[in-house]
Amino acid sequence: MNMIPIQHYLLVGAALFSIGLAIAITKRHFIGILLGIELMLNAVNINLVAFSRHDPEKLSGQLFSLFVIVVAAAEVTVALGIILRVYGRFRTVDPDEVSELKK
């Protein structure tokens, strides 16, 4: 069984992380920014899982990425609640236009 070298996993993770960073910067929409953040979390998980392949006794990397998935789920629910409240008050989804705490 030929093993894929770990550098290839790391390169895929790096590419996905960079694309997620570019998405989070360029999108002028709250949910677009959330899409980029989710992509970055997935890219980090690829690295953790790829290194965990060489640790079959304890699987620390896979456990860490399991907790990352849990935190991502909690984050996206709270973020969507906040986005819906902001949209209800300001009637916009552009982060540049939401620049005051009280209206």
């Binding site: 895929v12 989710e38 998980n45 690829i46 899982v49 790829a50 079959p56 896979q62 990425s65 998935i69």
Partner: peptide, 21 residues
């Protein structure tokens, strides 16, 4: 990404990725 997890030997994480994400 879930398929990459499975190819890296993390079968449970692949299924969890599909279900949660």
């Amino acid at each position: 990404v879930a398929a990459l997890y499975v190819l890296a030997g993390a079968d449970f994480l692949g299924v969890a990725q599909i279900m949660i994400y």
